[in-house]
Design a protein around this nucleic acid. Sequence first.
DNA 1: CTAGGGTTAG
Length: 752
Amino acid sequence: MSAMSSPLRTMTERGGRRSLLFSENLKLSQLARSGRIEEAIKVFSSMTNRNTVTWNCMISAYAKNGRVSEARTLFDRMPFKNLVSWNTMIAGYSHNGCSSEAYELFDRMPKRDQFSWTLMITCFSRNGELEKARRIFDAIPGQKSSVLFNAMISGYAKNQRFHDAVQLLNEMPIRDLVSWNSVLAGYTQNEEMLTAVKFFNETMPEKDEFSWNLIVDGFVKIGDWKSAWKFFERIPNPNVVSWVTMFNGLVTSGRIAEARRLFDQMPERNVVSWNAMLSGYVKSLQIDDALKIFMEMPERNSVSWTAMINGYARIGKLKEAKELLDKMSIKSVGAQTALMSGYIQHNRMDDARRIFEEMHTRDVVCWNTMIAGCCQCGRVDEAKELFKRMPKKDMVSWNTMITGYAQEGQIDEALRTFQEMGDKNTVSWNSIISALTQNGFYVEALQYIMWMRREGKKPDWSTFACALSACAHLAAYQAGKQLHPILLKSGYVDNLFAGNALISMYARCGRISRAKQVFDELEAVDLVSWNSLIAGYALSGNGTEAISLLRTMERSGIKPDEVTFVGVLSACSHSGLINEGLDLFKSMSKDYAVKPAAEHFACIVDLLGRAGRLEEAYELVVGMQVEENAGVWGALLGACRIYRNAGLANIAAEKLCEFEPCKSSNYVLLSNIHADAGRWDEVERMRVLMKERGVKKQAGCSWVEIKNKFCEFFSDDPKQPGTAEICLVLETLTAQMRNTGPVLGLSALDCG
DNA sequence: CTAGGGTTAG
């Protein structure tokens, strides 16, 4: 008996040991996949028996969780490396975007197989280094598998090199579904839906659920849920992904009730479906409904918890959010970031900072959230410090800093950051362009848009909105006009931000009928669209039309706001509708519950002033309940100059110098008034005051658009080309205006 | 344990 049992026992022991090792290795890879890296480390260090697979698993575990340097340490220390070890380490670098490190290993490895080639091609492609990927591809000896072709095709397609992708597709010996879908994904994910549908209908010989889902997702991504629905209905065998993709399309277009109906109709639901419903409710801030789903759902993962915490955080129920986080057994980075973000949104920066500092691991999203939070509450120096401290920056980090600097008016820092960053995406370009427009550098903004197009970056709705806004502020009609067809072709016309910017551009360039046409052609309009149009009529001096638009706007169910009234009131004053303007001013607080601000008072002062009712205007300013500003006194001063009321002008100009102590033109005006009245001592006092306050004459500057080029003019600039001609034209114009137009002092033309 | 469609939720 004993002689027989001995070898048997040895065999089972060996088998047992082997199966134990196998199951421990399996456990390691499972932990790695679900992001439980700390547990994986524990398991690995407690293992007495390790084989090469164990080491490979642990390398992969580290790399998949962003700890690529620890993975490398393990790789260097492991007792025996096989081909998979090398491939795993390369994959690790690839997942973490380290293409040069990956290539260094690839170059040194003793033997290569299909995995190695494919990994390296994918790694370079992900990094946008397509030429390097192609060099690898071309150097592969012998027959290339379709997996290799597909990797290269996918790389081209993802990077919008559609021509190269299709060419390779045609060159490969045997195409399969992955090949077709790789090209299709390139189109759908780059918002090329026209080409995508054509490829889907006319080129692809066969389709699977992937193909259908890609099309639906592509339409969802561009916000066209109707087209998404058309294709969704035609899917022969929609799977869970199809349903969730369509569901997501309804949620992003704000149709939460319809989304709910679709959810109820789903033939099968997995945890992703439930999470989609949950976060759908969170997005539309229906937190009670979200909670109901959270309680109802049969299975929860960290995404579910994170979504719920995020929901509470967004409506300011921070106590509930924190309690939920405390209940999580393994607190994911995302969940902690959600609570942190809640604190940031509700101005509890210290609490946010505490969570941030206490976190064991932080991903790039967490860092970016904290940085954005600091920027939002004006702590840009703190943001800068964090930005320096963070171990790995992504595109979002850089873009956030650019926007942060811009909001603080630190345009030089924004420009420096933009130049310093390596790769730039559309958002980076948009960030710097909107930084420029927000700070009044309109010519520079247009310059950057030109550079952006030269770099081959596709403009999106934000680019168009900024470009058109710059044109509007410069009254650059030629440039703005040319943007219109480009916008039409781009497919962003129905974007309200772009559409409103277009209205505003035409309106401010004095093309009010074109503005109206754009307005009428928009699928849906909002308050901003109405305000832009009304402001346009104000600018063109058509008060009657502005008032009539206000009425139409009300009938369409949109309530006017303070901006609307600035438009309507200034329209009244520009077209001499005195009584209408005064009536509207009275009714804006009474009937519309819009509190008049200084800007509205300025309109009425201007209106009364133009009618010569200077005393009334003065009484209004003195008696107004809101804080006075330069605009109000400026309006009064303007009226005083037309009607030559030196006494009131003196008061207004004094006030103006109080509000804008650094603006030289105010002192000059006041000084001129005193000079007119022969009060030379006062003129002298002005001169001394200017010197005391350090007021320097600002160079007057203006732009002219000639043949798509912007010419900047500075006053008193002897280097200015064509000065003599310009002065001659100016003199002629002035003479003509003296004879025909309203009487203006020469100072009215003295604007550089 | 490592490659090609990074189809869906954060």
